[in-house]
C-alpha cells in the first residue's frame, strides 16, 4: 500500500486502456480500494463519456429506490426469539393448567380439612402442555419441523423448558398461598416431566404423559381425596426419592436421544 500508482497509469486505467497488463490492473484495483487520494485522482482523470454513464446509472438507481417498495422497518428482536420458545398451541393448555391450580388453591382455602390439592396436582400439572408440545395432532407444522436437523430431543427439551417456565411460577404462587412446601410441589413436578420424556422415547411423549397422569390420578390423587390423608409419597421424607427419579429418568432420556429423531 506504500507505492501509489503513477498518474499516467491511473489515467490509462480510467480510460480503459487495453494495453495495460493484468498484473498492473489488479495491483491498481487493489490499491484503489484502500487509498482515497488515488480514488480522487481516478475521478479527476475519468473521461467524459464514462462520467455521463455513471451519472445515468446513479440517476436510475435513485429513481428505482424512490419508486420501489419502502425498506422493511426494523423489527423488535424478541419476536423471533418468542417464536422459537413458545408454540402458540401451548397457550390454551397453560391457561387451563393455571385455572385448575387456581381452583385447587380456592378449594383448599374453603375446605382446610382436605389434603393439599395443590400438592396432589403439582406432579401432573406440566404433563398436558408437554404432551401437546410434542404431538403430531396439535403442532400444525410438525411435518416440516420433523425433517429439520433441530428436530429431536433438543427441540422437545426447549419446548418443555417453556412449559416449566410458566408452570413453576404458578406452583410457587399456589404453594405460597396455601402454605405448603414448595420443594414437595416442585420435585415431583420435575420428576414426572423427566419421566414422561424418558418413557416418551419408547412409547411416544403423548402416550407417556397421558399414562403417567392417569396412573397418578387413579393410584394416588383420587384415593388421597377420599381418605383425606396426604399419601406417603408426598411426605417430606420422600424428597430424596423424587430427586433420584429426576436424575435417573433424565439420564435415560439423554442416552435414548436418537429415539426422538422421528416423531411418534
Amino acid at each position: 500500500m506504500t507505492d501509489h500508482p503513477s498518474p499516467s497509469v491511473i489515467s490509462r486505467y480510467a480510460g480503459g486502456d487495453l494495453d495495460l497488463d493484468e498484473a498492473t490492473l489488479w495491483s491498481v484495483e487493489v490499491h484503489l480500494e484502500g487509498c482515497a487520494d488515488c480514488r480522487a485522482r481516478l475521478a479527476g482523470s475519468t473521461p467524459e463519456d464514462v462520467l455521463t454513464l455513471l451519472d445515468r446509472v446513479s440517476n436510475g438507481v435513485d429513481q428505482g429506490i424512490t419508486a420501489g417498495p419502502a425498506p422493511v422497518p426494523a423489527r423488535r428482536r424478541w419476536s423471533a426469539t418468542r417464536h422459537r420458545w413458545l408454540v402458540w398451541q401451548l397457550v390454551p393448555w397453560l391457561t387451563m393448567t393455571a385455572a385448575v391450580l387456581a381452583c385447587a388453591v380456592l378449594l383448599q382455602v374453603l375446605e382446610p380439612s382436605l389434603p393439599s390439592l395443590v400438592l396432589l396436582l403439582a406432579p401432573v400439572a406440566p404433563l398436558p402442555a408437554v404432551a401437546v408440545a410434542w404431538s403430531r395432532g396439535s403442532d400444525p407444522a410438525w411435518e416440516l419441523i420433523a425433517t429439520t436437523p433441530s428436530a429431536g430431543l433438543p427441540l422437545l427439551l426447549r419446548r418443555t423448558a417453556t412449559v416449566l417456565a410458566v408452570i413453576i411460577p404458578m406452583l410457587g404462587l399456589a404453594t405460597d398461598r396455601t402454605g405448603v412446601s414448595l420443594a414437595l410441589a416442585l420435585l415431583p413436578c420435575l420428576a414426572f416431566t423427566t419421566t414422561a420424556i424418558a418413557l416418551g422415547a419408547f412409547v411416544g411423549v403423548r402416550l407417556a404423559a397421558l399414562g403417567l397422569a392417569a396412573a397418578w390420578g387413579s393410584v394416588v390423587a383420587v384415593p388421597a381425596v377420599f381418605t383425606a390423608h396426604l399419601p406417603v409419597v408426598l411426605a417430606p421424607g420422600s424428597l430424596g426419592v423424587w430427586a433420584l427419579i429426576v436424575v435417573a429418568t433424565a439420564a435415560v432420556a439423554m442416552t435414548r436421544a436418537d429415539r426422538f429423531l422421528r416423531r411418534r
Binding site: A80, H83, A141, E143, I145, T148
Partner: peptide, 28 residues
C-alpha cells in the same frame, strides 16, 4: 434437505418472513 409436504401446516400468526426465518433457524 429441503421438503415441501403435500399438506403443509404452518403457524397462522407468523408472517411469511418469520415463517421462512423460523425454518432457516430449525435447519441450523
Amino acid at each position: 434437505l429441503g421438503y415441501l409436504p403435500q399438506q403443509f401446516g404452518f403457524y397462522p400468526r407468523f408472517t411469511v418472513r418469520e415463517f421462512v426465518e423460523y425454518m432457516a433457524w430449525l435447519k441450523e
